[in-house]
Design a protein around this nucleic acid. Structure first.
Lengths: 233, 233
DNA sequence: TCAAGAATGAGAGCACTGCTCTTGCGGAAT
DNA sequence: ATTCCGCAAGAGCAGTGCTCTCATTCTTGA
């Protein structure tokens, strides 16, 4: 009977992923705002009302795609870090940082609409539900892990920190990385935001007719961020 | 008769700005995707089809709002720079940079939806027309002007530049600021993108439950960007 | 095993959207 | 004064998200 019940549930998850895949397809082609439940249903050969058995609203479908996208960038970042750790030779902290940044950028350039979904303007009238905060932090945690590695290898030189910011820095450090110096924690948060500033400008076309050698430009900027965080070698 | 014709044209521009104002109001309340031509017309006591005499499509209305928004941030930045130049005492390059960055951030926090319109994901199916590139560059030009001021005052120390990036740096410098060292030009572009990364993360809520003392945090990050560009004192 | 029950799909329908087209009105130019 | 042209109004089309009802089909418990 578990097999029978499994059949039902398997059908359900199959249809669910089919819906998400088709939605992702339309997302990649037309962007988030043009994504239409009816069009997805039509393409899948079902009637629109049937789709509501799987996703109670359009926003819920979007949320599912958002979670998947966060997971996808997260995996890209984590894989890059893992490769940098025990790959050929084993990279130093600086190179690991650059590898992770490049991996995130590559994913963003390959999936611009999904990237826009998670790092562009929040979708209209939509506020991120709790399900997203876990997946959303994977890239940040990866960056923190790099700093932690560096710290253990004595390759971390905490950047200067203004006295005014010291209590806040301690708070942030306690929150996200209690084992790292507060100055590194704030620098990490800032670098994290700045990294996505670089990527967003490239993905959203702000560099058009301005920056041509995007790879080299990004590599230089990412290295600089690594310096700001205090990563050595 | 010029008075009479003027009356006609005045009426037209009056209605046009009324439409834009109401649209901006709805934008601020609900976000770009929820902005509806029919709702704007309804609120203005006219029928929806009449609105098409003023804006040929919803995208054109959006474009008008985008241009206005670019101009508004641009003015905020330029005003901050002017105040920093000949204000009380006259600020140094570093403080001018911080002042301009803070002004842009303040505008963004005060007008989050308009900010999202111009620095969030590009609106669905919409590609920025030529009218926007002028207004869009005002903030960037202001940042360049700060570096130029610093250069003239011998307060600019060009950051290091990787050999690989040198030709591209020369190209960028020739494009946007021929009188500045190439290394400064690339650093400016990078800092420009990173600045909006910081602001976007704050406006879009990515710092929620993570950064509390936003002012101090931003000030520190902005100062760091000034350093990266090579601004002294 | 068979009947009660839950899950699923189909269809109609509501209120809304952007946009087009036609019609009529009133001020502007000749 | 009459011909225009700008403007507004209304109807209408195709599309949207979402809800409701009704039938069917699979699952489960007695």
């Amino acid at each position: 009977m578990s097999a029978i019940r499994g059949a039902r549930e398997r059908a359900r998850t199959e249809v669910t992923t089919a819906i998400k895949n088709e939605a992702r397809r339309q997302l990649a082609q037309e962007g988030a705002a043009k994504l239409s439940l009816r069009a997805v249903a039509r393409e899948l050969g079902m009637v629109s009302s049937a789709l509501y058995r799987y996703f109670p609203s359009r926003d819920d479908l979007l949320t599912a795609l958002i979670v998947d996208a966060y997971d996808a960038v997260g995996v890209a970042a984590e894989t890059a870090l893992a490769d940098g750790r025990d790959g050929p030779g084993g990279l130093g902290p600086r190179d690991r940082w650059n590898a992770v940044c490049s991996a995130v950028r590559a994913w963003a350039l390959a999936h611009p609409h999904e990237y826009a979904l998670i790092y562009g303007s929040p979708v209209p009238g939509y506020t991120a539900p709790g399900d997203t905060i876990g997946p959303a932090s994977r890239v940040g945690l990866t960056l923190i892990a790099i700093a932690r590695d560096a710290s253990r290898a004595d390759a971390l030189a905490p950047p200067p920190l203004s006295g005014e910011l010291r209590p806040e820095a301690a708070r942030i450090a306690a929150d996200i990385a209690p084992d790292l110096p507060p100055a590194v924690a704030v620098a990490l948060v800032a670098a994290w935001a700045q990294l996505f500033g670089l990527i967003s400008f490239e993905v959203f076309g702000q560099f058009n007719r301005m920056v041509e050698e995007r790879d080299a430009f990004f590599a230089q900027a990412a290295s600089r961020l690594a310096e700001d965080v205090g990563l050595r070698g």
